[in-house]
């Protein structure tokens, strides 16, 4: 129950900082941090990973870390080329 209150408060805070111009430069890091906090609260408490077997944690973490690694790599290769589909000269 306490967790749910914290989750609700974090969501409120997220929306609040979205509308505060003074925090514009910090917006993205703050949002990522808040979102990460919510994510962890749900998987650790609501999904009991904190209390449950390590095997479950490992299974899930394997998928999550693999996802982060390969897709950051993939988007990086696009970034190195300058974004999606830079139209080659002469082709329209």
């Amino acid at each position: 129950m306490k967790i749910a209150v914290v989750l609700a408060l974090i969501t409120l805070a997220e929306i609040a900082i979205y509308y505060i111009p003074a925090l514009a430069s910090l917006l993205i890091p703050l949002l990522v941090a808040f979102s990460f906090a919510k994510f962890m609260l749900v998987i650790l408490w609501f999904m009991h990973l904190r209390f449950d077997s390590r095997i479950f944690t490992r299974l899930f973490a394997a998928g999550l870390l693999l996802t982060l690694t390969v897709f950051i790599l993939m988007l990086l290769t696009f970034f190195l080329r300058g974004g999606p589909a830079p139209t080659p000269p002469g082709i329209t």
């Binding site: 095997i55 479950f56 299974l59 899930f60 394997a62 998928g63 999550l64 693999l66 996802t67 982060l68 390969v70 897709f71 993939m74 988007l75 696009f78 999606p84």
Partner: peptide, 21 residues
């Protein structure tokens, strides 16, 4: 839990597509 690990890659692919586009 194994299935949820797999689902991470499923949504990861869609989210990456969105980020690209």
């Amino acid at each position: 839990w194994a299935f949820l690990g797999s689902e991470c890659l499923f949504f990861g692919s869609f989210i990456s597509t969105y980020l690209l586009y």
